[in-house]
């Protein structure tokens, strides 16, 4: 018990977590901070209270299955440990949440990017989640780290997508590769990787067209892109990141599942967390599929992409509780 409090006792950590908290505080009606009110105003720990708690978690899009299981587990623990006070109950919730998501694993959100190697990162996702913007932000990060970065315009379908990435490339000072609109995206990747080999590139960031995961043909196209990359550079792509919009609901699970089948995801980028959405679906994805969250987008600026820190995120979620 008291895991959560200990975790955030250090000042440095609290400071770091501040950004998440600000990002997530913007909501008008605090979502998880409702927990506090609900728990403290309830005289007893009864079924009604459990129902309220369940709803609060669901509000954060945490995945209905996960939440129902979690609350059932809470119920059992409360009766086992004879927990009666609101204070103890709050502690229990947070401890159990951490057990569920943090466990004992060492969470690293660093990308698998090495020196002296051509690194390839593939970005995939449904339409409108922020893939292109995310690529710009990642490019910015690695350019600052002194890498030669190449941005590849793999979205040859959507109007203006190539221009959008090109504009970003100019802004962040990245190299840029594109072919005319409507080109076969696999051929774009093929040529881009050869260009990268000839031009001393360290890191290739591949954009792809947004596609809904139930579109068989588009998923086949993605599989081919993935295959071509693997053929041109051994063990590539070194990272395949699924970009998910924080406002996404239960469909996020379906997205993660199907994209994972086609391209074997190495991580999730959770974008637009600066809005009012809590992005809890990313937790459901981690819980159900074991795919870690690597980045979170917290604003439109180039620096507003943070390496994901589960503890900080949880802090952001639960900070209203104490």
């Amino acid at each position: 018990m008291g895991f959560f409090k200990n975790l955030f006792s250090s000042k440095a950590k609290k400071e770091k977590a501040r950004k998440y908290k600000i990002g997530m505080d913007k909501t008008r009606e605090g979502v998880l901070s409702n927990l506090k009110d609900v728990i403290e105003s309830s005289q007893t720990i009864d079924d009604e209270l459990f129902d309220d708690i369940e709803e609060i978690f669901i509000m954060a899009d945490m995945g209905v299955d996960t939440v129902v299981k979690f609350v059932d587990h809470l119920k059992a623990t409360v009766s086992d440990q004879k927990i009666q006070t609101a204070e103890d109950f709050k502690e229990l919730i947070i401890d159990e949440m951490f057990k569920l998501y943090v466990q004992d694993e060492i969470v690293t959100s660093n990308l698998d990017i090495e020196d002296d190697r051509l690194n390839v990162v593939l970005f995939v996702g449904v339409n409108g989640v922020g893939k292109t913007t995310t690529i710009a932000k990642v490019a910015h990060e690695y350019i600052n780290k002194g890498k030669n970065v190449l941005m590849v315009a793999g979205d040859t379908f959507r109007a203006g997508a190539i221009e959008q990435l090109e504009t970003w490339a100019h802004r962040v000072g990245s190299d840029f590769f594109s072919k005319p609109a409507k080109s076969d995206p696999s051929s774009v990747m093929f040529d881009a990787l050869n260009y990268a080999k000839d031009n001393n590139i360290d890191l290739v960031l591949c954009d792809t067209a947004g596609r809904l995961q139930n579109k068989k043909n588009l998923m086949n196209e993605l599989e081919k892109i993935h295959r071509v990359i693997g053929r041109e550079v051994s063990n590539a792509p070194h990272e395949t990141l699924l970009v998910i919009d924080a406002t996404t609901g239960q469909n996020g699970l379906s997205q993660a599942k199907i994209f994972n089948e086609v391209t074997t995801l190495s991580g999730i980028v959770l974008t637009k967390l600066d809005g009012t959405a809590k992005g809890g679906i990313a937790l459901a994805i981690k819980e159900e599929l074991g795919i870690p969250i690597k980045y979170v987008g917290l604003g439109e600026g180039l620096d507003d992409l943070e390496h994901f820190d589960l503890e900080e995120y949880m802090y952001g979620l639960f900070s209203g509780l104490f």
């Binding site: 008008r28 449904v126 924080a246 406002t247 996404t248 609901g249 809005g275 009012t276 959405a277 679906i281």
Partner: peptide, 10 residues
């Protein structure tokens, strides 16, 4: 977006 979750209301 039809895929929006609980935040659609907000």
């Amino acid at each position: 977006d039809a895929m929006t979750g609980q935040d659609a209301v907000t």
